[in-house]
Computed example of a mutant assay.
Amino acid sequence: MAAQTETPAFTSYVALGDSFTEGLNDPDPEGGFAGWADRLARLLAEGRPRTPEGPYDFRYANLAVRGRLLDQIVEEQVPRIQQMQPDLVSFTAGGNDILRPGSDPDEVAERFEAAAARLRDSAGTVLICTGFDTRDTPVLKHLRGKIATYNAHLRAIADRNDLAVTDIWALRTLRDRQAWSEDRLHLSPEGHQRVALLAARALGLDTAEAPDAPWPATPVHTPAELRRENLHWAREHLLPWVGRRLRGESSGDAVSAKRPDLLPLG
């Protein structure tokens, strides 16, 4: 975790979303996943005093579940915010909708804004994230225009509703292969850390580490090695992902929220 010299006065945080916010492919010591939201919660908590019992004077919940579409997040997760009344909510949704054939980013954005307005009534601060720049990502690079359109809507929604924005599209270090896990669909642990740092700065936290710091040098692959790597990725990750969508299945069908209650962060 990065050191910090200034901490916003947040005492509670609830994360909403899909696999990105659940933290897929960022293993935690207990056998689950951490992810950028857990890392952001830790950054915020470390600026708070500890209670006599030991945990920080900071509560955190993560309701995100992999594979969830925007309407599912709105139905299952958004109503919990009215009950919890946290100081901070992160709301990242719509990415899975945009990836679906025939989806309309204009229409998805309308539904997103309606949900964001609901959250503003029940939380002190709402933080949203733009989508990734997929220019260098196989297959997904063809959706770059749709993602850019959706991002333009998200920035306008933030302006109209006074939301904080983590501008992931603009974070060029995430276009490096080291930011991504083997499946190329979810971030690596260091990629999640970069997003956590960017989110912290969007909230006014001064972090010692920079989200756009250069990556360490890596070996240069030959064209033949890259082809073998791409074939392995397509066989092991892309085809199963496409197959689930053709069958109408989701990787989160049997998954529940990893941290469903707003509890002190130890």
Rank of each mutant, 00 (worst) to 15 (best):
M1L: 00
T5Q: 12
E6M: 01
A9W: 11
D18M: 04
N25K: 13
N25Y: 10
N25L: 14
P27F: 12
D28V: 08
G31S: 11
W36A: 03
A37V: 11
D38L: 05
T51W: 08
P52N: 13
G54M: 10
Y56M: 08
A64T: 14
V65E: 06
R68K: 15
Q72I: 05
E75Y: 12
R80I: 02
I81Q: 06
P86T: 06
P86L: 06
D87K: 11
V89C: 04
T92V: 14
G94P: 03
N96T: 07
V108W: 04
E110G: 05
F112C: 07
F112P: 07
F112N: 07
E113T: 03
A116N: 14
A117Y: 07
A117K: 15
L119P: 11
L119D: 06
S122M: 05
L127P: 04
F132H: 05
R135P: 01
T137N: 14
H142A: 11
R144N: 14
I147Y: 00
Y150R: 03
N151S: 09
A152M: 08
L154Y: 09
I157S: 07
A158D: 03
D159Y: 00
D162T: 10
A164C: 12
V165E: 13
T166G: 07
D167K: 03
W169P: 07
W169H: 09
A170C: 07
L171H: 01
D176H: 14
D176L: 05
Q178F: 04
A179W: 14
S181Y: 11
D183W: 07
D183T: 05
H186Y: 11
L187F: 14
G191L: 08
H192L: 12
Q193V: 12
L197Q: 05
L198Q: 08
A199V: 09
A199K: 12
A199C: 09
R201S: 03
L203R: 05
L205P: 01
D206E: 09
T207H: 04
P211W: 00
P211T: 01
A213W: 03
P214A: 10
P214E: 10
P216F: 02
A217S: 11
T218N: 00
T218C: 00
T218G: 00
T218M: 00
V220A: 13
E225A: 14
R228M: 12
N230D: 06
N230F: 05
R235Y: 14
R235Q: 13
H237K: 01
L238I: 12
L238S: 14
L238P: 13
P240I: 02
R247E: 09
G248N: 12
G252N: 07
A254Y: 01
S256C: 04
S256A: 12
R259L: 14
P260D: 09
D261K: 13
D261I: 09
L263E: 14
L263F: 00
P264S: 01
L265N: 02
L265G: 01
L265T: 03
G266I: 00
